[in-house]
């Protein structure tokens, strides 16, 4: 589904991300972990063509994302607040995004009803997104990413700022989507969340892919050991 070859991104002399090769297959649920500054967001931004690669390319369904815009039709994503239009209300924003994918107001109302447990839209229907709390912005962004029923879902730190029940909800939602065939890439600092839901875990350190392991019952221990050692 997503292929990376010879990808590198250089920022000045201090930081560079290099990934010689990586393939993410259809229906995988990939967790991306790494300490601050490891290059998680850089990698996700390259997958979404938000920044130009210094070398190499990311291919989605066999097409380079920097060349063709087809990936936008089937990719849902939320990295940060800059993906939200601050002066719209959540409902207007969902309608805007939905409209781009040919969904009408009643489709969207139905979608919001289904996901009411996560984000109670009517409580905020008179508030602009810019006035929402960080957690609620995050929720709006995540819902807008899954609203168009994407085949690929890319989320950066989706569990950050979420309350406990929303975290649980999101975990089961991601599993459910994955069971329905959606390919998912999530980054997170929470090793527990990642080992619970992901089928494959990638560890980035200082711009390099240092581990690529399938999840099993020992994964959490393994990860904890890894991060313990590298921090000392």
């Amino acid at each position: 589904m997503i292929e990376i070859s010879n990808l590198s991104k250089v920022y000045g002399k201090k930081f560079s991300l290099t990934i010689p090769t990586l393939a993410i297959n259809k229906n995988e649920l990939v967790g991306l972990v790494g300490n601050n500054g490891a290059g998680k967001t850089t990698l996700l931004s390259l997958m979404l063509d938000l920044i130009p690669a210094t070398n190499g390319f990311v291919k989605s369904k066999g097409m380079a994302v920097s060349k063709s815009e087809d990936w936008k039709n089937y990719t849902g994503s939320y990295l940060n607040e800059r993906f939200l239009i601050p002066y719209l209300t959540p409902t207007e924003f969902f309608e805007f995004i939905g409209g781009l994918h040919g969904k009408n107001a009643s489709d969207i109302a139905l979608f919001l009803k289904e996901n009411e447990a996560f984000f109670k839209e009517d409580a905020y229907d008179k508030t602009y997104i810019r006035d929402l709390s960080a957690g609620n912005k995050n929720k709006v962004g995540i819902l807008a990413a899954i609203l168009p029923k994407p085949e690929i879902l890319i989320l950066d730190e989706p569990f950050a700022n979420l309350d406990p029940s929303s975290q649980l909800w999101l975990k089961s939602k991601l599993k459910e989507l994955n069971n329905n065939g959606v390919t998912i890439v999530v980054s997170s600092h929470d090793l527990k969340h990642v080992t619970e839901i992901c089928s494959r875990i990638l560890i980035l350190d200082n711009g390099k892919l240092v581990k690529d392991i399938p999840t099993n019952s020992n994964s959490l221990k393994e990860l904890e050991n890894y991060f313990n050692v590298s921090s000392i």
């Binding site: 936008k72 039709n73 601050p86």
Partner: peptide, 11 residues
């Protein structure tokens, strides 16, 4: 402040 929206959405 939300230019990225236009880069990743189907626009």
């Amino acid at each position: 402040s939300f230019f990225d929206t236009f880069l990743v959405q189907k626009i």
